[in-house]
């Protein structure tokens, strides 16, 4: 398949990008790593009039740490995130998730910002962002705003980003002392979109959990923060009984969407199994 005709522009500055977005809005698509966009074009599932290539915009690149927050530029490649010492030290959940993000060739080009902005419900990074309380910085011609990850994802490929806005960076609080993370996913093959995936983050004191944050992907039309399951573990000493309570509560938190790879019931079952294992591992890691 060959892509339908489109115009292509490669601006040299962020202002230029925002100007173009203001002018073209939904008729334009941002080209970052192109790992989802290009197949979509070649399969003629999307027919934008204009591609705005942001790969020359320096201020969208890089990973940095300041004042307890990790900043991941929208153009940071998955491969860069995967090998980043900042991410390894301050965002162990993301470091753990990265090897599950597609395959080497895709990670070499695909970007962190692209994964967030696309909002594929089976993707790992949006759920990590939700679990870790990340904020996304959106810019348009008129200014910038920060949107919390938990209120950013609206549905299948749907987000709070307006047509004239560009996701410029993600800001994620660094892991604090006493906290631990755990990430697990199941896929038919390594690197595939998940059948079920869980991101756990909590303060772990001995085997007592607090500030528990459980987020799921590969389940619904968007990453899901599990309020009930998180609450069921809150303040509890981790035990088989608590594990069962968490798994039970998860039934009210998640309403998985089935497809031919796995039914809704199987996805819920797998999310429950993974949750138990992920918290087991998180507690045992101490």
């Amino acid at each position: 398949m060959k892509a339908p005709r489109f115009a292509y522009i490669r601006p040299e500055s962020l202002d230029e990008v925002l100007e173009l977005l203001a002018e073209h809005g939904d008729d334009a698509r941002i080209l970052a790593g192109g790992q989802s966009l290009m197949p979509t074009l070649n399969m003629r599932l999307s027919r934008p009039r204009l591609l705005i290539d942001i790969n020359r915009i320096e201020e969208l690149k890089g990973i940095s740490f300041e004042d307890g927050t990790v900043r991941i530029g929208a153009l940071a490649r998955h491969g860069e995130v995967m090998t980043s010492s900042i991410v390894a030290e301050h965002l162990p959940m993301i470091a753990e998730a990265m090897p599950h993000v597609a395959h080497v060739a895709i990670r070499n080009r695909g970007t962190f910002g692209g994964s967030i902005a696309l909002a594929d419900p089976a993707a790992e990074l949006p759920a990590c962002a939700v679990a870790l309380g990340a904020e996304f910085v959106l810019a348009n011609k008129r200014g910038r705003r920060n949107v919390a990850a938990r209120s950013f994802f609206n549905g299948l490929y749907e987000t709070e980003r307006a047509d004239d806005e560009l996701l410029v960076e993600t800001r994620i609080p660094a892991i604090e002392s006493g906290y631990r993370s755990s990430f697990m996913e199941l896929a038919r093959r390594h690197g595939d979109f998940a059948l079920a995936g869980v991101c756990c983050h909590a303060r772990v004191d001995g085997n007592v959990l607090s500030d528990v944050r459980l987020a799921y992907f590969g389940s619904e039309d968007r990453p899901r923060f599990a309020d009930g399951a998180s609450a069921a573990a809150e303040g509890k000493a981790w035990s088989e009984d608590v594990k069962e309570a968490v798994k039970t509560a998860l039934g009210d938190d998640l309403d998985p969407i089935g497809n031919f790879h796995a039914s809704a019931a199987t996805r819920l079952h797998l999310a429950r199994v993974l949750t138990g294992r992920a918290i087991d591992r998180m507690v045992a890691a101490g």
Binding site: R189, G191, F260
Partner: peptide, 15 residues
């Protein structure tokens, strides 16, 4: 329903 390599799965070296 699965006419692409995203959904028609073939074995991959890692597995």
């Amino acid at each position: 329903l699965n006419a692409s390599f995203v959904d028609y799965l073939v074995p991959m070296a890692a597995g």
